[in-house]
Design a binder for these strands. Structure first.
Lengths: 331, 331
DNA sequence: CTGAAAGCGCTAACAG
DNA sequence: CTGTTAGCGCTTTCAG
């Protein structure tokens, strides 16, 4: 951000006022064709580049969206961020991304940062239910994706999520159809989502007339560090014949433990799909989230709210697609 | 970016001038302790949030770095972006990310965007050798990571890369040590990098006294669409007993084709490592890039250049670490 | 220690 | 169709 050439330089060089240059550069129809072209030519030859900050500050909007995600290394969020970027850029908006590492403090810092950068709106995947979002956000529009805002303020925000209950129920149902009689679950630590997935798990068991057993239900730490040990606990000690991992990270933890357990004849299910699951010897039944859709709707909704702050808030629930995996290629 | 409360509001409320508020908020030592605390309290109670754009425009720097990457879905770049974000934020800089999808046009648009947003510097993983960076960038500092800038302007920019020759040579050498006699390569389309990796491949063959054969050398399309077919060509038609994939994307293409070829007794090597490679039945020898280092150095260097535009440019070559994979766990 | 005033680069009335 | 003027929110001389 060094001594750059400004609108003033162009104006001087073109022998017109700054206002005219501004108009010409913005293709205002109310400037003579000839002048406009001349000005644009001069601007180009001078290597003029508009200062977006100055513009934003003047017009009172940045045309920029902020996005708060907990872990960019997690494939789900990488894809989500990609989807959101695509949708936003199609609407002429840029997006700023901040990683929270699931830390509330980093999240707070990130949100602050974005507000200072004057984003027009925020897309948030919350790192925790304890944050006072209304106070943090002020009147900056926000939509929550993938994770619910804290219960006491849900109704104040739009949210777009996947149907966790149904998705989980489908997976477990599929495992049972294929012969599972004792299904273990390693759930995530994210409260609302975890509850829904647990509910789906229970429903599937009940629907099949199988008993629930607290001994087959475990909850992973947010960093996943205790997952391998839990996998062992459930598959070996508890003799589960199928194991459900409630998300991406958890499934990875499970997979890392499997070789040393050297079991056979058990099934695997997981929420969130990964392309490379196709390459594994052990098939995994997954629920694939409609990530592009999630992103598209979130952006759409956020932009709508930016244009009309009074819009009533809404919840969007999208169905997850079950990928049974052992099919054609996996006999 | 709606009607927010400004420094003026705080000043009025505190009965002081805007200047004093500004000083107080920036912890200037030249404002009386009492006034400062009072002002800060008022600012807080009013929910005042500084307008970063206004500040940036005034002080002529944004404390923001821009990052241009070709594909955020590629694990290598996700990790790289993460590393860069970490390093930058530690230095008090934010980072803006733009995805190019390997499209020169998107890259140009992205760079433009960042410049308009007045980033203080740019970290670029170039999408093509044909771009006229000096013209695009003007005097905004930039460092190139992972991919060389165009040959005619290399010397104008800092670059931080991995030692592709050595890394590849190590992988191929390892495959040969384990018995490979006819090693195929599917190279990437990225020119400079590809040449280096091909060189390493040739060197390893020569060192082992093996012949090179153009029939065992293929080049993937940038989108990887023809990789599966190439894998078939090399492994089946050309009867290679080992296959080297020059990057992440290519390896994925190869893996997707393997099941239907149902071969046995062949080896796999790849540049770029992925955690999930550990879970595959077929071990893969990889060269793992020191991504955190790459990011750290890039940021360090960029910041140094921001502070001193006259700094002589430099090239950093980091060693890739070979992961032989069939070890302890893979007998 | 604090205030008044100028100005970063840009756009939006308001005149002409 | 174009110029003049004012001002977005902030920091920074320069005075006091």
């Amino acid at each position: 951000m060094s001594a750059n050439i400004t609108i003033k330089d162009v104006a001087k060089r073109a022998g017109v006022s700054e206002a005219t240059v501004s108009r010409a550069l913005n293709d205002s129809p109310q400037v003579k064709r000839a002048t406009r072209q001349k000005i644009q030519a001069i601007a180009h030859s001078l290597g003029y580049r508009p200062n977006g900050l100055a513009r934003s500050i003047r017009v009172q909007q940045s045309h920029t969206l902020g996005m708060i995600i907990p872990d960019i290394l997690n494939g789900f969020f990488t894809q989500l961020s990609r989807a959101i970027e695509d949708a936003a850029s199609q609407a002429g908006y840029d997006v700023l991304i901040v990683n929270t590492d699931e830390h509330l403090q980093k999240e707070a810092k990130g949100i602050n940062l974005m507000l200072e950068k004057q984003v027009d709106g925020l897309i948030i995947t919350s790192a925790g239910a304890s944050t006072d979002y209304p106070k943090m956000l002020g009147n900056t529009p926000a939509v929550f994706v993938d994770r619910m805002p804290p219960a006491d303020v849900v109704s104040q925000y739009d949210r777009v999520l996947v149907d966790n209950v149904q998705g989980t129920q489908d997976i477990i149902g599929c495992l049972i159809d294929r012969g599972a009689r004792r299904v273990g679950i390693i759930n995530s630590a994210v409260s609302a989502t975890a509850q829904e997935r647990l509910k789906g798990y229970h429903r599937a068991l009940r629907a099949a007339g199988l008993p629930t057993d607290p001994a087959t239900e475990a909850t992973a730490r947010v960093d996943g560090s205790n997952v391998p040990q839990m996998a062992r606990q459930l598959l070996v000690n508890q003799k589960c014949d199928a194991l459900f991992a409630a998300d991406n990270t958890i499934m990875t933890g499970v997979l890392s433990k499997l070789p040393e357990l050297s079991l056979s004849d058990f099934q695997l299910g997981a929420f969130d799909d990964n392309d490379w699951f196709d390459f594994l010897p052990q098939p995994i039944v997954t629920a694939k989230q409609p990530i592009a859709e999630l992103g598209r709707i979130a952006v759409e909704r956020l932009l709508a709210r930016i244009n009309d702050g009074q819009l009533p808030t809404q919840e969007f629930r999208l169905a997850a697609q079950i990928i049974p995996r052992p099919t054609a290629t996996h006999p």
